[in-house]
Nucleic acid binder design. Structure first.
Lengths: 296, 296
DNA sequence: TAGTGTATTTCATCCTCAACTAAAACAATC
DNA sequence: GATTGTTTTAGTTGAGGATGAAATACACTA
């Protein structure tokens, strides 16, 4: 059978998610129409996704009767493959940090260097431009906007976040879902209890990003949300190769948990103050050799 | 002769700007190499631009000798043609505001409706997505993220700016160029002294945007700058067809001028407070029939 | 009738080719 | 020797076609 499309893979994952949410068990029957409607998509990709799931033995098709659920795979089994563009972006940022890239690059150079098609290279550069990392030169080519390992950049980022993030929880409409708090707390506790491995640094960064982004989203104000998301994207580029000690992880998690506690208790001013000091402390950390940036 | 390229037109304008900055007069000689270097561009487009200027009688080429300046056209003579994409964006935003566009559009529909090529339509949609105005649907097409004339959106924008902009002038590195202050002051005074015409509303908006963006740029922090610029772009879409009264223009200019005064005197805290009340006042204005948004 | 199976249409992406533009190298002239 | 004129090379953009995927409409089955 044909390889699954990005969308089909995505739909397949979301179908499994729906099945879990509805607490369906083996033997349950799925409905193409409803599924398609719930996912906001036509039946075509849903059918394709179901075909793929059938191949994996998760469901079984019965001719003209429907789809039977056979066995539900474990959560997180489908190892989301990050997009090629994402990978290339991280790689590019990394090479730039280490002085392997000149101050100016052409589109073609990006294509060759990271083995991308033209549209992909264009998207990549557009996204970097959006993050204020590069800009178009007047004629051809692109120019990096700051030096590798620019300390000023990091300071600027913290100063910006210091203005934005503590204000989030003071916004009028600020509201956190109880479920979100619970999930965040669980994820943080996991890091406190299990031993730290270098390999978990990417997942740790993502949890951090989700924490800060979630707080911004809770304002209900899309501009706060998108400003924080933008900062996260930016930091993601340089932070994927952290060298991070367990103490730092511990401090970070503890501070996050404290904020969650106060927010749950409705003490938003306290949480706001905590956020401020949290960011201040992070901004003052000395940078280790491999520590281009750190947790928050 | 071939029609001037976007870049060539741009270079031509900037050459004239350089000539003015250097206070060159008729009879002066221009140097291709230096010009190219100053503009950060190769000689090729500079030559082309000079050819176009020669056609218009601004300069004259002497074979193997150089370029002689003949007559300097008046400022603002070259009516900057905004990019086709810009125009289409404004038009699209306008139609959307007036309910002429459905909640979902396809790329092709954008191409047809605004007579754009595919790459242009893609760029347009990408930029709208960047401004959080639309998002990709899972399958095909794009979806508008908010209702036309969404009041909430406007409130959110003000709340965000209320957090960001007053903090700009309190940032450690904040520094305004004296020349910038002088120019801004002059432009504002012009609006106070000359009678208000409906036709000046676009120019008025641009002055406003330049004011706020300039203050953000003065922080030396690119994140403040880019956050404010983003807000300006967003507002530009819905604000180009203002219906604005002279009183509002007057109040707006007066407040801006007061801020400039205090900033010049080093009283940044005062200016910051003024900015806060400035934004608050603007956010509380009642919206007139055509007043989708207002000055600040 | 409510659902799946099938076909058709619309849409988007990818690719390649052609045209053109800018950059860089070289030649010619003052 | 510096500056302009010319050529060469590299890079980018735009247009059309092929491919494949999603949306839609229709047919079929329980």
């Amino acid at each position: 059978m044909a390889a699954p499309t990005r969308l089909q893979q995505d739909i397949a994952d979301r179908i499994l998610q729906l099945v879990r949410d509805d607490a369906l068990t083996s033997g349950a029957w799925l409905n193409e129409n409803q599924t398609a409607k719930r996912l906001g998509v036509s039946r075509t990709p849903v059918r394709a996704a179901l075909d793929h799931l059938a191949e994996q033995g998760v469901v079984r098709r019965h001719l003209n009767k429907g789809i039977e659920l056979i066995s539900l795979p474990a959560v997180g089994d489908s190892a989301r493959t990050p997009e090629a563009i994402e990978l290339a972006m991280v790689k590019l940022a990394h090479e730039r940090e280490n002085g392997l890239l000149p101050d100016e690059v052409s589109e073609l150079e990006v294509m060759r260097r990271y083995e991308l098609g033209r549209p992909e290279a264009q998207k990549l550069l557009a996204r970097l431009a959006d993050l204020d990392m590069v800009e178009r030169k007047p004629g051809y080519g692109w120019r990096f906007l700051h030096e590798p390992r620019d300390k000023r950049l990091r300071d600027e980022s913290y100063r910006f976040r210091l203005v934005i993030e503590p204000m989030c929880m003071l916004e009028p409409g600020f509201h956190l879902e109880a479920a979100w708090i619970a999930e965040m707390r669980a994820r943080h506790l996991e890091y406190l209890q299990s031993p730290w491995r270098e390999s978990s640094s990417i997942a740790f960064y993502e949890m951090n990003a989700a924490f800060h982004e979630g707080l911004a989203a809770a304002t209900g104000n899309r501009y706060f949300h998108s400003a924080v998301r933008r900062q996260n994207q930016l930091r993601r580029l340089s932070n994927y190769d952290w060298g991070l000690g367990f103490e730092r992880v511990q401090v970070n998690c503890t501070e996050h948990l404290a904020m969650l506690d106060h927010l749950e208790a409705g003490e938003n001013e306290v949480a706001s103050a905590l956020m401020r000091s949290h960011l201040l402390r992070a901004s003052k950390l000395k940078l280790g050799s491999r520590q281009v940036d750190e947790a928050d």
